[in-house]
Amino acid sequence: MTFKHTMAAHCESGTVAALLKHEGMDISEPLVFGMSAGIFFGYFESRKFPFPTFVVRNRPGQIRTGMASRIGVKFREQKFRDPGAGERALDDLLAREIPVACQTDFFYMNYLPGHVRVHINVHFIIAVEKKDGVYLVSDCYSPDIAPLDRDSMMKARFAGGSFAPRGFMFYPVSVPERIDYRTAIWKGIRSAAFNMVRLPMPFLGVRGIRLFAKKVVDWPRLARDTEHLSHEIMKINILLEDQGTGGAGFRFMYATFLREAAERLKDPDLHDMSKRIMEIGDRWREISLFAARIGKRRDLGQDRLRELSSLIYERADAEESFFRDLLAMSKKKI
């Protein structure tokens, strides 16, 4: 099978973009991310997490479903109760030279460095071939197509826990000949902006950023010791920069989406907005670098955490203004 592997910033948007490109569509990762309203913020404290955490994107799976509803691409999706049936179905598609996206537990992607692999059940890879019992997978985080042994693939596809994959896999079965990019782009923008400023829950959107800013000063109470606190503070950098966001918690990728949208639709307003979110992203990156620095130095007193908190509050204000303007703009355009 000739499948063109490319690295991407994020596994789900990268996987969907790669599958659509394989089907002959001219589409980029930022366009997939933006049209499916990928940008988001949520702050969570739950029994499922050992420590408070935050997300900077919409719910896993919504990038695929968003693309299906906005541009009309049809995906064949399957889940399995029986792992054996899931394996046979995947192998059958690969034998027919159909690349298939699989939902997996990131922990078992043993071709990636050990220190990045954690249990998280929403990692997407594309299986492109099975040779001598070993799967060849296109993973956006790997520079090349990587081998994944059958045992690891099965554990990864049928891991339990939150968002258990249950062997979930998908691939496009039809792509539309003509796409109304204008409507798809503006609907994606409106949905993302609405989610950021209009959701009433206190832990989602801009409210979630403010909650994060408020709570981060309390993190020392929740940590086992200074090293644990340092680890959690440094994870802010990982969640914003390294965990497949394209930098600054997806804000740089969203800026790229708005720039691409501005060019496709010849809309100077979107060009200006792309600059604004790029600048907002620059300040997010400063936050992540600040977090890494104070974490390594164990400089985690209340003054430092309050400084971190005020930087996050500033981002909440900037994003509220940005997404309110974007929402108002989207209402006029569609």
Binding site: A8, A9, M234, E241
Partner: peptide, 18 residues
């Protein structure tokens, strides 16, 4: 604006601390 393939900043500078 576009993608840039680069090394991981945090891995390069903070892996020893991890």
């Amino acid at each position: 604006y576009g993608p840039v393939r680069t090394g991981s900043y945090i891995t390069k500078n903070y892996l020893d601390d991890y």
